[in-house]
Design a protein around this nucleic acid. Structure first.
Lengths: 96, 96
DNA sequence: TCTGTATTTAGCTATTTCGCTAAATAGCTA
DNA sequence: TAGCTATTTAGCGAAATAGCTAAATACAGA
């Protein structure tokens, strides 16, 4: 896993973006509705996530649709679990 | 989970510290042997990890022994898994 | 109390990060 | 092409981060 992934996950706005994309693909504008930051600021967050390969954007005419790279996120977390030799049993949901 | 945990995990030196402490408790000096950074620099890394409650230091005479808070680290990673609705099956070991 | 060892705190610098506004780019429709 | 919408890029400032050296603190032993 690239080191960029950890940095990408370190920011609360970016974690929230990933959570939103977990539910469905969204355009930059749709995502922006959920935040108070300016669009340029969010755009840079997108690019950080994109560089970490956690999300991927495809242009659709006027807009850019972002989707979560689920497997990359999964592998990143599993790698961390292994890195620290954490064993798993079960689990619930939600939290920030 | 506190936001400080994510920041703490974002630095490679600090991840390595956690890995080393996963194997056994170590003094600041013992840990320092594994790195090229100066001791003051490492000391600040210890305090970042400590503020995130990921490690705990106890004075033993001259030295300070650091130990990993395994459960805190475990819960942090599980919280992330849940945050992103990641399901788990099995797993191997190691990687950085 | 003096000396030595272990560690942290203080203070500095360089780099990175995050936020903003303004401007540029990309694509649509008329 | 002109005008509109969506998004990114450029450029700036403030704050955070990580590194260093020097100095301070804490403890042990003579």
């Amino acid at each position: 896993m690239a080191a960029t992934v950890y940095k990408a996950l370190a920011d609360p706005t970016r974690r929230r973006i990933l959570q939103l994309l977990r539910e469905r693909d969204m355009t930059a504008g749709e995502l922006a509705v959920h935040f108070e930051s300016s669009k340029p600021t969010l755009s840079r967050h997108f690019s950080v996530l994109s560089n970490a390969d956690l999300i991927q954007g495809t242009r659709d005419g006027n807009r850019i649709i972002y989707r979560l790279n689920v497997t990359v996120l999964e592998e990143a977390l599993l790698t961390m679990m292994n890195m620290f030799s954490i064993e798993i049993v079960g689990g619930d949901k939600n939290e920030q």
